[in-house]
């Protein structure tokens, strides 16, 4: 995979797609029928960011299982990197969600199932880093982190389901099992933004993995010279 596309090319492709998606959202997609007007355009970033965040946590889940099976450090690195990025994206989901909420419903915060789920997800994956910080031995740290990453990812859909027990929220349901609920011109912009955001995640994961690998090698070298 490393040979297939160079890192700058991946970032560039993500950038081009994200900008194209945004331009299309403003110039090509129809204006929202509700009173939101241009504020609704944040949807074209908000939803892709949310899906990318969940994708990052999904990657960490798979990496955790692979780590427990193989005890290979590269899966632990992938776990850390994807959770860190997933957390950044989750915070962005909440930020864009709150901006949208203020524009659409007139309030910065609403205890709405999806927003609440992402808030809890942020706490959950922050705890992952707290857990990592209090285990000194490397292998043990990676093992505990993997166990926690598995449990945490299982908890995400459960949390989302549970928040539905609260009184119904105001969040629009755009994508359901029966279709996307979007006209074609909306879907094109949305889809391009989504691919762009996913590529951005892949590019960031790749870059961060390189950094983590270097960090590990530096630590090993320091160790070998008795530092």
């Amino acid at each position: 995979m490393k040979k297939l596309v160079s890192a700058p090319a991946l970032f560039a492709a993500a950038g081009v797609l994200l900008v194209t998606g945004l331009l299309l959202a403003f110039l090509y997609s129809p204006m929202d029928a509700s009173t939101m007007g241009y504020s609704q355009k944040i949807f074209y970033y908000h939803a892709p960011i949310a899906e990318t965040a969940l994708l990052a946590f999904g990657i960490s889940f798979v990496a955790a299982i692979l780590y427990l099976r193989s005890q290979n450090d590269k899966w632990d690195r992938l776990g850390v990197v994807s959770i860190r990025l997933g957390l950044v994206f989750s915070i962005l989901v909440m930020a864009t969600g709150m901006i949208w909420g203020k524009a659409a419903w007139g309030t910065w915060w609403d205890w709405e199932p999806r927003l609440t789920t992402f808030l809890l997800v942020c706490f959950l994956y922050t705890a992952y880093f707290v857990l990592r910080s209090v285990v000194d031995e490397e292998q043990r740290r990676a093992t505990f982190a993997a166990v926690f990453a598995i449990i945490a990812f299982i908890d995400v859909p459960i949390t989302f389901f549970a928040t539905r027990f609260l009184p119904a929220g105001m969040h629009p349901t755009v994508i359901t099992s029966s279709g996307t609920g979007m006209p074609g011109s909306m879907f094109v912009s949305f889809f391009i933004s989504m691919i762009g955001m996913t590529l951005l995640l892949v590019a960031l994961i790749r870059r961060d993995l390189g950094i983590e690998e270097l960090r590990d090698r530096v630590a090993d070298l320091k160790h070998s010279i008795g530092g």
């Binding site: 809890l120 706490f123 959950l124 705890a127 707290v130 857990l131 926690f148 449990i151 945490a152 908890d155 459960i158 949390t159 389901f161 549970a162 928040t163």
Partner: peptide
Amino acid sequence: IFLPLIVP
């Protein structure tokens, strides 16, 4: 680590 997981 326990509280966020037990919320649901």
